[in-house]
């Protein structure tokens, strides 16, 4: 009974995307939608087969993923540490927070010309941009999370003799974690966005480069494939954080709903 209803739900959810896909395919086949504008879904699928068979797809995917992760670890790591410092100490907040709150209003992509002058079109430029982009959401949410840990719990923990590292790991970090994970989800969105821009403008490998190179040969199927890959990567990153939320925040009724 419930399985049947679950199946019905799945069909209902898939109805609109499948319908669009079918309409798109029909329009391409009848010639109403020229391949120059948008290739047929089957053509995109063929491009995927072709590029994965040649290995080019996996190579570019690996390069892009490595850039994204390196930037995330560097920028997110620094953001996390500085967020803890300014969240835990009044002095740290005085020193860091006003400056960072000011700088965060500068769109990091505005720095591209400067970044190209500093690093050229080398790997560092792209990693720098990604790191800068993910830094702020992680910093802001870590700071906010640490600051909003229930003071009554902290008082309780102190009365029961918790100090230093134990107070941090048992009370402050778990209390700040929901907010930190929100920051991580924001950061992952920024991460892909930044990487797309950086790879499209100045790169000799990666998914963004693959799309730009395809433009020269009017390979709309490859461009479409790149866009779909970015969408899939974004979704994958989002699912990963949801997984972490369910795993780490299972105590919280708001997150315990999912499996």
């Amino acid at each position: 009974m419930t399985r049947f209803r679950g199946l019905g739900d799945a069909v209902l959810t898939a109805l609109v995307p499948l319908g669009l896909l079918a309409g798109w395919q029909v329009a391409s086949m009848t010639g109403a939608l020229p391949a120059r504008i948008l290739p047929a879904p089957t053509a995109v699928f063929d491009a995927a087969l072709e590029l994965s068979a040649s290995g080019a797809l996996w190579e570019n995917l690996a390069v892009s993923a490595a850039r994204a992760m390196t930037g995330l670890v560097i920028g997110g790591g620094i953001g996390f540490v500085l967020g803890l410092v300014s969240g835990l100490s009044r002095l740290g907040e005085r020193l860091l927070d006003p400056t960072l709150q000011m700088v965060r209003n500068v769109p990091h992509l505005a720095l591209i010309p400067l970044v190209i002058i500093w690093f050229g079109v080398e790997e560092e430029a792209r990693i720098f941009l990604v790191a800068l982009g993910v830094f702020f959401p992680i910093y802001l949410n870590t700071h906010h999370g640490v600051r909003t840990v229930d003071p009554q719990l902290i008082e309780m923990a102190r009365i029961y003799g918790m100090r230093g590292l134990r107070l941090f790991s048992r009370v402050i970090l778990p209390g700040a974690l929901p907010s930190i994970l929100v920051g991580l989800r924001f950061a992952l969105g920024v991460m892909w966005l930044t990487l797309i821009v950086a790879e499209t403008i100045a790169a000799s490998s990666g998914i963004g480069h693959m799309a730009m190179a395809a433009r020269e040969f009017m390979r709309t199927d490859v461009i479409m494939l790149s866009i779909l890959i970015y969408a899939a990567l974004g979704k994958l990153a989002d699912s990963a954080t949801r997984f972490l939320e369910r795993r780490w925040l299972s105590w919280n009724a708001a997150y315990a709903g999912g499996r």
Binding site: L153, Y160, L249
Partner: peptide, 26 residues
Amino acid sequence: RLVFQEPRLLPWASVGANVAVGLGRA
């Protein structure tokens, strides 16, 4: 030891772990 008006339990720790907080050490 003091019992507050609110339970002030750590929501991310199990009931047993919350009681163990009262030991005052790891």
